[in-house]
Nucleic acid binder design. Structure first.
Length: 808
DNA sequence: TTAGGGTTCG
């Protein structure tokens, strides 16, 4: 599609040149951004409709026809909201224009565009996508012979203009629409006008977490501030909780699209308009810039990442948003505070109040109020509630909070805003007065309940903390019954029962290898390998007893096994690399976008993250591969929770390179991928760009390893089972790449749940301290779903012989 | 429509 645009001649009111906003382009009218291959973001061009402009800046006097193009950040007048662009269709046949453009127009390369030159008779050719337009009759069609219709676009109607930037494909193929980036204009908070619909960036100064309004929707009230120091309070409604901004604390940064501005009580006020959408970011300087989106589809470009980082820095030095956060161990009588906690139990108390039993792993220094509730009303794992009884507190939620409180899921992580601690007056029966926790009715001071997602940084921290809590310190041993003491001393009692219930290994009817009859072990032992048998045996013992020791790394090329390096070794390598400063010349190359910052710790450290682009654009975090220089182990783990792939690198003179292969060359989720030192032949890191150019990069570890010249080591279970059936004892060696009882070898080292599962599986197969006759009988299916399988054992035998040959 | 920031009945 070809598209010519010409601005409509309109008179504009003079407007003061906006003050410089480092985070935001000047408040211009609709803009287009072209970022063709090889054009760095700093030189990205901004094109916008433009009339004979009274702006004195050189380059602005481009006249009223043609497509005006200017460097961004050149102050100019804001344009009116409604644009009218005559449209004429140009036909292309085999990539060539069938219709001739007027002869006075000369084609301009986007890279050559610059200010100060006359572009009246220039055109450039790219693929545009215009969305959200109105079609109107062209008033000049008769005179100028153009198309009878033209398109009207306006920000208010949510119009967007896109330019395709796919470098390698013909700009006229159908596939180009796959990578387009809309461009939005963000209005500083001191430039808002009544009756407009705008896009905004701001730092959250105050917010009310979404609550159920008296109408039909959820409501959230958010007060923003930006570098202009102007405030804006927005009242946001939506029937869907998920569509409201995911703000968790003051200081978060938000991007709002399509906020309607109104004047109310002499002040500007924001309100949701049709198509309202938001992104929310952690406001902490240096934290990964990961959007929490209120809609499934959104755009977020590199330039905006800088906006967020600049807002963070501005906020750090210009705003103080001391949150009233506190741990249970910090509470005092008569205070209001925000509590980040996990929900352990809940109960209906009466019509106007609802009980939440929560903990944060710390202990309140005062005796706490226990709200009496009927046993049948209390929801939650009774054993867990009992175990945690001295570290949970009862929070009573009233009135409008009851409905939301009722709907909360046990085990979820919450932030309860503005809990009030109240000291109950001492009575005769209760000399030692206790503290009560109230979430009063209403939404004053942001009072309410927020549900935090599992990947929230504070939740991650809390979870880690909760896992380490030693409950024995908080148990009052003297008052415990003998039964309770039993609970305390047997750490597994509470955990084991639900787990066991879920994972009990039942006797199964074998479905695999029904064609084979069982063979006695004596016969197997007297046979020559290789052969396949089906056996029925009991597991007498297995090694190693410490199951994590059964996981090794195997190189299928040189057939060597090695231990999985521990985290300390990786940490040491990272520390060594952090001493080398990132090479500034390797920042933001054509295929990746870099962000560098310096930590504020005592010993300053430079961290650089290189985000690999896909068709010139950053992808959603969950699809993004990034490379990191100078990060610590903890930081790298944090990144792996949000991004698809993390590759630790260091700068050398002319390229980035992988670290020593004692360190993982790739991290995905909680899996560290290693390369064989002997068989790998590392290639240039730039080879990753070939994967990024794929239509949908899968970022498979095998593919990444291949392009980087790495011989990927595979995680394997290596175990020895001694099987008996009364006729003999057979050692069977397990060598399994994939899964053993649905437990992936690559994940067991970092997953305590899988470790417990494996331990229980093995204990069921070979219970410690029991007689042989009580052992589980080993059979099963080849998927390893229930018990060891005959074919499984056969494979093990074959492999053991194979290994035996190699070792000899 | 709802709410339009500014703590507490319990």
């Amino acid at each position: 599609m070809g598209l010519q645009a010409r601005s409509k001649q309109r008179k504009l009111q003079p407007c003061p040149v906006p003050s410089a906003f480092p985070h935001s382009p000047p408040p211009l009218g609709p803009r287009l951004r072209a970022a063709p291959s090889g054009l760095c973001p700093a030189h990205a061009l901004t094109a916008y409709r433009h009339r004979q402009c009274a702006c004195a800046v050189p380059g602005c006097g481009l006249g009223g026809s043609g497509l005006a193009v200017q460097r961004r950040a050149v102050p100019c007048r804001p344009l009116e909201q409604v644009a009218t662009m005559p449209v004429q269709l140009l036909k292309f046949i085999k990539g060539k224009l069938e219709t001739q453009l007027p002869s006075h127009l000369q084609r301009e390369d986007l890279k050559q565009l610059q200010t100060g030159l006359d572009h009246s008779n220039k055109y450039f050719q790219d693929t545009f996508v215009v969305a959200g337009f109105k079609v109107a009759e062209s008033p000049t069609a008769r005179e100028d012979g153009r198309h009878a219709c033209h398109l009207q676009v306006s920000e208010e109607a949510g119009s967007a203009i896109y330019i395709c930037t796919q470098p390698s494909t013909s700009p006229f193929s159908e596939t180009t629409s796959a990578s387009v980036a809309p461009k939005y204009v963000y209005t500083p908070l001191n430039c808002l006008k009544d009756g407009t619909v705008v896009n905004l960036y701001g730092i959250v100064k105050f917010f009310k977490p979404p609550y159920i309004s008296k109408g039909t929707d959820y409501c959230s009230v958010v007060t923003l501030v930006d570098q202009s120091n102007e405030k804006l309070t927005c009242t946001l409604f939506n029937g869907n909780l998920e569509s409201l901004p995911k703000i968790y604390k003051n200081g978060d940064i938000v991007r709002f699209h399509r906020v309607k501005i109104r004047e109310y009580n002499g002040q500007m006020q924001g309100i949701t308009s049709a198509g309202f959408a938001s992104l929310t970011f952690d406001g902490t300087v240096g934290a990964p810039v990961v959007p929490r989106a209120s809609s499934k589809v959104y755009t977020f470009i590199d330039e905006e990442q800088k906006t967020v980082e600049e807002l963070r820095i501005w906020a750090a030095s210009n705003l103080s948003v001391p949150g009233p956060e506190a741990k249970l161990s910090d509470v005092k009588p008569m205070m209001f505070f925000d509590l980040t906690c996990q929900l352990v139990g809940k109960a209906k108390v009466d019509g106007s109040s609802f009980l939440l039993k929560v903990w944060d792993g710390t202990k309140c220094p005062y005796p706490t109020w226990k709200v009496p509730v009927e046993e049948k009303e209390l929801e939650g794992d009774k054993a867990l509630l009992h175990r945690l009884r001295n570290v949970t507190v009862d929070v009573l939620a009233y009135d409008n909070h009851v409905q939301l409180a009722k709907s909360l899921k046990i085990g979820s992580f919450l932030r309860i805003y503005s809990i009030h601690t109240k000291q109950a007056s001492a009575t005769n029966e209760d000399i030692s007065s206790h503290i009560e926790f109230h979430l009063h009715g209403g939404t004053c001071y942001g009072r309410g309940i927020g549900i935090l997602p599992e990947n929230n940084a504070d939740v991650e921290e809390l979870k880690t903390f909760l896992e380490c809590v030693d409950l024995t310190d908080s148990q009052n041993m003297e008052n415990m019954s003998s039964l309770e003491l039993g609970d305390t001393f047997d750490n597994y009692t509470d955990l084991e029962s639900p787990l066991q219930r879920c994972q009990q290994l039942s006797a199964t009817v074998l479905t695999d290898h029904q064609d084979m009859s069982n063979t006695m072990l004596k016969t197997v032992l007297n046979s020559r390998a290789p052969q396949q048998y089906r056996i029925r045996a009991k597991l007498r013992s297995f090694k190693p007893q410490k199951l994590y020791q059964s996981v090794k790394l195997h190189c299928s090329k040189c057939n060597t096994l090695q231990e999985v390096p521990d985290g300390d070794a990786f940490d040491l390598i990272l520390q060594g690399c952090a001493a080398t400063a990132p090479n500034p010349e390797l920042q933001s190359m054509s295929w990746y976008e870099s962000v560098m910052w310096t930590t504020q710790e005592e010993k300053e450290r430079k961290i650089t993250i290189h985000f690999v682009k896909h068709y010139e654009m950053l992808q959603r975090p969950e699809n993004t591969l990034l490379m990191i220089e100078g990060g610590t182990l903890k930081e790298i783990w944090k990144l792996t929770r949000r991004f698809k792939c993390v590759i630790p690198v260091k700068s050398k003179e002319d390229d980035l390179e992988l670290l020593d292969l004692s360190a993982p060359f790739l991290l995905q989720g909680n899996i560290k991928y290693y390369g064989c030192k002997k068989c790998s032949n590392p290639k240039s890191i730039e080879n990753l760009s070939s994967l990024a150019e794929k239509r949908e990069p899968s970022w498979e570890p095998t593919e990444i390893a291949q392009v980087l010249g790495i011989e990927l080591l595979q995680y394997v279970f290596v175990m020895k089972f001694t099987l008996v059936d009364g006729t003999g004892a057979l050692n069977a060696y397990l060598f399994d790449y994939e899964k053993f009882f649905q437990i992936p070898a690559s994940e067991i080292l970092t997953n305590s749940f899988l470790q417990q599962k494996m331990e229980m599986t093995m204990n069921t197969l070979s219970p410690p301290g029991r007689k042989l006759g009580q052992f589980a009988v080993l059979e099963g299916d080849k998927n390893g779903k229930d018990l060891l399988v005959c074919c499984y054992v056969c494979r093990v035998l074959e492999f053991s012989l194979h290994l035996g040959k190699n070792q000899k």
